[in-house]
């Protein structure tokens, strides 16, 4: 054993230790830069009102993005999140208004239905080895159709009875939904790093064949992850319904791309095997701050989209450069 090895090992150790906070530094810096730029560009941007508004408008996207992170980590993809959200939202509204169910009953049923959609995605893609892209694309249409079916293609107005969840708590400025979303993010990060399910998800995403050859069944993990993603869409649906006081069968169109963008900006690999729930949350924040800031500046519509697209590409580019360094 040469002294060189010892030195290298200790260097590696200290490096790993240093990387712990640095893991989030890139995202945080990008976020701070964005906020600074917008604050300088628009005199009204840097205000409590702006940040409260952003905080209270992101819980649904955050929760969907957490589910998406896990699906991406196992090497899958879920294109159906927006439609499943619309379906859950529609079911919730119909049970509440037409059937006069209590809120908790309607809410639980909606989340369960969304979970079932996720389970079907997972079962069909994992059991029959069909690409998740195709299966969830099918579910995207099925759930959207279901949403139109249950609502009869009408927007269902519910009223203020459910608004408490997304209204800012007095003296705190943020809504219960935001606090819940933060809780989901923390729980997700914990699950990813500290539970068997989380580690298994990373293992499957890294090399599913190896996991299988090691004599471990991948189906239960995949089913859990897809069901979780579906159920999270259901919860996001409740939050969105509360925020709009309405269930709209058209809602959530394009949500899958927003969620995937947030994950990817946060460094989750589309090839599976790596990702961080907290960085996904940063991804959501970056997208939302960008959206809100450009809107306040009154940037023209084409520019908004071009800038958003460039930020997504740059984020992934930088992340890939960083990964090559390691």
């Amino acid at each position: 054993m040469s002294s060189k090895t010892v030195r290298e090992t200790s260097a590696n150790n200290s490096r790993a230790w240093q990387q712990l906070p640095l893991q989030y530094a890139g995202m945080a810096i990008a976020l701070i830069v964005l906020v600074t730029v917008f604050s300088l560009r628009s005199k009204t941007f840097f205000s409590a009102a702006t940040f409260t508004t952003i905080a209270n408008s992101i819980p649904d996207l955050t929760i969907v993005a957490v589910g998406m992170t896990f699906v991406l980590i196992v090497g899958g993809i879920d294109l159906s999140v927006g439609s499943v959200l619309a379906l859950a939202s529609s079911i919730f509204a119909i049970l509440l208004t037409d059937r006069h169910w209590p809120i908790w009953g309607a809410g639980i049923t909606a989340v369960l239905c969304a979970g079932v959609c996720g389970w079907i995605n997972g079962f069909v893609s994992a059991q029959y080895r069909i690409p998740a892209f195709i299966v969830t694309l099918g579910m995207l249409e099925i759930a959207r159709g279901g949403a139109y079916l249950v609502t009869n293609s009408e927007t269902k107005y519910i009223g203020s009875s459910i608004e408490w969840a997304t209204e800012p708590i007095a003296n705190l400025a943020v809504s219960p939904a935001f606090l819940f979303a933060v809780l989901v993010v923390l729980a997700g990060q914990w699950m990813l790093h500290r539970t068997v399910l989380g580690r298994m998800a990373v293992a499957i995403g890294t090399n599913a064949e190896t996991v299988r050859m090691s004599g471990i069944r991948t189906l239960p993990t995949l089913l859990s992850i897809y069901t979780l993603c579906g159920a999270l869409c259901g919860i996001a649906a409740l939050i969105q319904t509360s925020r709009l006081s309405t269930a709209d069968p058209n809602s959530g169109a394009g949500l899958e791309l927003a969620a995937i963008a947030a994950c990817v900006i946060g460094g989750t690999s589309l090839r599976g095997g790596s990702g961080s729930v907290i960085n996904t949350f940063f991804g959501v924040l970056i997208v939302s701050v960008l959206q809100s800031g450009l809107a306040q500046m009154g940037a023209s519509d084409p520019m908004k989209r071009i800038v958003t697209g460039l930020v997504i590409i740059f984020a992934v580019l930088v992340d890939s450069l960083r990964n090559n360094q390691r």
Partner: peptide, 16 residues
């Protein structure tokens, strides 16, 4: 169809 975004835009404009 992007209702959620339009709703958020209204809030943002108030904040602005």
């Amino acid at each position: 169809r992007d209702l959620a975004r339009q709703s958020a835009l209204v809030d943002e404009m108030v904040a602005a």
